[in-house]
Structure formats: C-alpha cells, structure tokens
Amino acid sequence: MSDQPLVRLVDVGFSASGSVILRGVGLMVEAGEIVGISGPNGAGKTTLLRLLATLLRPTSGGGTVLGVDTGARPQDLVRVRRQIALVGHFPALWPELTLRENVNLPAGLRHGPADGDPLRAVGLAGVAGLKAAHASLGMQRRVEFARLLAWTPRLLLLDEPHAGLDEAAAPLVDHLVARVTDRDGAVVMVSHDRNRAGSLLTRRLSVTAGTVVEAPA
C-alpha cells in the first residue's frame, strides 16, 4: 500500500453533455508530493480535481485513487472519500448558518468536535456568530481551512486556495499543506498565483486543451 502511488490515472477522459473536457490524461502522484496545476480558463483543471476527488467518474480510461479503482461502486468509494478533502472554487458553506456552525456541523458527520477552537486558529473567533451569507470570500475560505485543522486528509485538493485570502492568511495554506505531506499524504493544487504557491510545489503540471503536460519551469 505504501509503495503504491496515491493517484494513478491512465489515459483518462471525461466528457459531459456531449462536450469533451479532458482526454488522454495520465497522472501519478506519490506520497509527499505537492503538485501544482496551472492552465488557461476552461482547460479542465477543476474537472481534473473533481475526478481526483472521485466525485466524477472518468468516461474513458481509469486508474486508482488511494488504492481504489476510479470506477468502483459508490459503497466502495466511501472509505476513500473520507480521506480526501476538496477546497473548491466556490466555498462549501451553508449560507443560512453561522461560521461556527459551518465548522462544527460537518465535523459531526465526519468525527467528533475538534480539539481547541479552529475558528480562533484561523483568526475568525471574533465573528464566529456571523452568518456565512454575510462573510466575504476570504472569510469563507478561512472557515474551510478551519475545518481542515480538525483532521488530516491523505489527499488534499485545493482549487485556487489563495483566491480572496489576504497576506496575513496566506501562511494558513502552507501550514495545511505541510500537515498533509508530513503524514505521507499528497497535495494537488490548482493555482494561477505563482508568487504564493510557487515555493510550496514539488512539481508543476499544466492542463492544456484537456490534457496534462509537464509545465515549463
């Protein structure tokens, strides 16, 4: 198990509603890697992250994510999914609930409540009672990071993690990434922000016209 790559995609294609999004994607991610993905708008970066999260199934080709086949039955994917975290382009928050509830509620589904106060750790303790609908994009991002302080995924998928974050909050991303790689996990990060993300990465890839290529350094 430990020798296996965390992600192994072979000739994966994905299309929806008659449009091809990805094709011929080959990708290996080993434990400890921090892979950066860049590419023009509409190239298929977000779709690739969702394939890695097992939220989408390849429509052609296949492979394994955390040792389980990408085409496995949903009940077999459950165990794998619980070890994957995706911080997507749009924040996964309930707009009607407060920031604190948005941290505690998913924790109840996954595990018990976190030790300490994750909202304090991300600097939001003072606005814990604010409704998510009234929080800025950067604050919502921080709430998602606060959730990740209570557990450590094996595979962390980040879609533009720095978008909306202020300078002071940027080290949060570094911290979360380090937690994952320290425990033999891997990180795949879509980012256009070379200044902030660049120093973290162990490898750069580019999604261009629906396929993955090594990015020029």
């Binding site: 949903p74 994957i84 995706l86 997507g88 996964a92 998913p106 589904l109 996954r110």
Partner: peptide, 17 residues
C-alpha cells in the same frame, strides 16, 4: 437548495445517499 460545493462536502464526508 443545497449548493453544489456543499453536496460535494457531504459526499466526501462519507454521507450515505
């Protein structure tokens, strides 16, 4: 009502449909 990203979060948290 639940937004797409929240549905993703629930799926990745292992919620049985």
């Amino acid at each position: 009502r639940e937004p797409g990203p929240v549905r993703d979060l629930l799926t990745l948290s292992g919620l049985d449909p």
